[in-house]
Computed example of a mutant assay.
Amino acid sequence: MQGIRSQEVRKVLWLTLLLNLFVMALKFALGIATGSLSLQADALHSVTDSANNVLGLVTNRFSSPKPDREHPYGHQKFEAVGALGIAAFLGIACFEILQGAVEKIFFNSDQIAIQVSGAELWLLLVVLGVNIFVAFYERRVGRKVNSPILIADAKHTMSDIWVTIIVIAGLLGVWQAENLNIPQLQWLDVVLAFPVALLVFYSGWQVISENLPWLVDEMAIAPEAIHDLVMEVPGVINCHDIASRGMLGRQVFIEMHLIVDTDDIITAHQITEKIEDHLERNFGTVRVLIHVEPLEYESDDISFGSTEPTDNNYIVEN
């Protein structure tokens, strides 16, 4: 199943890489031909699209939930690392866009005027259509196979759509500046470079906020939710010191201390297996570590680390 998922992700990444390279080349050519700063910045933004696809192909090659000797918890965090790489590329693009706009306003204001033709605007509409296809295609497949790298890249491409729309609007204004006898419209190209940068930054922030919790082992499932499900299993007396990490919907690791109504090891083991099955039915793919304790270690501390450890707890943990 994981192999099929990886193949699907790679197929999407290769297709979108080719489309992004086409878009990038066309934007650069039009940006140079027209002298448009916002269009050149948009082309720079598209460079990150292609780099993201390459990064996604690399991380997809190494990402897997299956454990091995060197990675006993699997390799899926490689995808989160790849998604953060996308955020880094977006940050670089944002800086370059702002730098170019500021330089043109304060140091090269005599170079504001640009030339745009109707044919060049039509080509930009083609670019917009390609971006829309890539964004929705990546998002649909990403959700289908639950791939963070595809979902993150789809969000990046979605920001590219808005960037391109802004650029087209600015170039339309520049195109009509002479016909309408409003020379101030020539400044639209530079002025609109700033919202372009803000959209790029926002896209990067979204990617970081969605993937960083996974890398820093933030709580994946509320311990109270786990506790309520565990207590539904017959034979469970007490469940405490619950911890979870990972990402719900992909893979979650759960730890807990458990007290069961039996002294028989086999029966206790059967109860823990029922707990694992129950949690998997409710939360999807999970790996559960259960520490069975005697009745005298019963505790009301549902969340792991919610109170200072007592001497008894210290003995148990060691």
Rank of each mutant, 00 (worst) to 15 (best):
A169V: 15
T164L: 10
L124E: 10
Y137H: 09
V126M: 11
I132L: 14
G129K: 10
A169M: 14
G129N: 10
V127Q: 00
L150G: 01
I149K: 00
F136V: 10
I166S: 15
A135T: 07
H156R: 05
V130C: 08
S147N: 01
V130R: 04
I151V: 12
A135S: 15
I161K: 05
R139N: 11
T157S: 09
I166T: 14
Y137R: 04
V167C: 11
V127R: 00
V134E: 08
V116A: 09
V167Y: 08
W162A: 10
A169G: 15
I161E: 07
F133T: 05
I161R: 06
R139I: 08
W162F: 14
I132Y: 12
W162Y: 13
F133S: 01
P148K: 02
L124P: 02
N131D: 14
I165E: 09
W122A: 13
V163A: 13
V163G: 14
A119Y: 15
I168E: 05
L150E: 05
A152N: 04
T157G: 01
L125K: 13
Y137G: 01
V163F: 05
F133H: 01
S159E: 08
S147Q: 01
I132K: 05
V126L: 14
V116H: 08
V127C: 14
W122Q: 13
V127S: 11
K155R: 14
L123I: 11
H156D: 04
T164A: 15
K155C: 07
G142C: 06
D153R: 00
A169Q: 14
G142R: 01
G129R: 10
G129Q: 10
L128S: 08
N131S: 12
R143H: 15
L150M: 04
A154V: 05
V134R: 01
R143N: 14
V126C: 11
V134T: 12
T164K: 07
E120I: 05
V134Y: 03
I132D: 03
S117Y: 13
D160Y: 07
I132S: 07
D153C: 04
V134K: 02
M158Y: 15
V134N: 06
V130D: 04
V134S: 05
N131W: 04
V116G: 06
E138S: 02
S159R: 06
I168N: 05
S159G: 13
V141G: 01
M158G: 09
F136S: 09
L128W: 09
E120R: 09
V130N: 02
G118V: 12
H156Y: 08
